[in-house]
Design a protein around this nucleic acid. Structure first.
Lengths: 159, 159
DNA sequence: CCAGGATGCGTGTCGGTGTGCCCAAGGAGA
DNA sequence: TCTCCTTGGGCACACCGACACGCATCCTGG
């Protein structure tokens, strides 16, 4: 299914205003509410829109510290990977975990209240992960870019 | 402002169903629609809820490849950082950029269609960034965890 | 015992949403 | 060239539901 620029405009708007009504969106995109409703439903049915979700201000919850954690395992056997992954998904402070190519096996993004809190997370969550050989942490001093969707998605205007 | 577990339940639900109605939420949380509306509005007004946004399935757009890029600058002068950051925010394929402590100055998360596409991005976006001394890329083989909100937020039950 | 905050119910109004229908444009085929 | 068909858009309408109020009630803490 090919998306034209009106579809992209709808998506761009919904990534900002997920609760916008049909008429509201229709005005911004330049369609009638009927046509917009059809397109929006199609975008949902075809899976372009996965969900509508509220974005929380994590700083309001005290989570102001982002830490990138590199983890190397003792072995890269299938069993070791499975054991590690089964546990890492349970870590409450981990928001992202990538299995990486290269020397580091996994890279995690961890959110903490501050450096002391990260020490606690390191002790109670990370150090309990199985099969870990080495853990290396780097603190993010600042977040320069934080986008849910790369802007390249909305600039691919077809039709 | 202290959040009780009903507030957290509301937030947890809204991070999944941002378009849920008051009555729908009220049933799940165990409140009347009136009480729920008041609480939800308070959560919005106090900034706990930043926005309601549609989550797009980036795989549907062909963006199946995640790359972590480490960038070291020629100098860490304030001017060099500013110049770099002013340009990196314009890169259409970059979704995240952290200023880091440690040896690497910046870590970017880049989304590409595939490895060939990343070569293009490297050529047209990354290599044009100013003051860059070294670029090192690692490909994510798999995404083990991807959460917008750490689960620790919802488990902090007070009151 | 009292006061304040939060809850729940009921109600009315407003708006969103879905449907049926018609219209316009474009393409295919005879 | 004419016609048929498809695709997408817009209009009108009706219905259901969401949302916002007012008020009574409850619970808790002082």
């Amino acid at each position: 299914m090919a998306l034209d620029r009106k579809d992209l405009a709808i998506l761009a708007e919904l990534t900002t205003n997920a609760r916008a009504s049909h008429t509201e969106l229709a005005n911004k995109v330049g369609l009638s509410s009927t046509a917009l409703a059809r397109r929006q439903k199609a975008l949902e049915d075809e899976g372009f829109i996965q969900a509508y979700q509220a974005a929380l201000d994590l700083a309001q919850f005290g989570l102001t510290t982002t830490v990138l954690v590199r983890i190397a395992l003792e072995s890269q056997s299938d069993e070791a990977l499975k054991a590690f992954e089964a546990e890492v998904v349970k870590c409450p402070s981990v928001v992202r975990c990538f299995l990486m190519s290269g020397t580091d096996d996994y890279i995690l993004i961890v959110l903490a209240r501050d450096i002391q809190d990260f020490e606690r997370i390191h002790r109670t969550e990370l150090s309990r992960l199985p099969r870990v050989a080495r853990v290396q942490s780097s603190f993010a001093l600042r977040e320069v870019v934080n986008r849910a969707v790369p802007t390249v998605v909305f600039s691919e205007a077809k039709r």
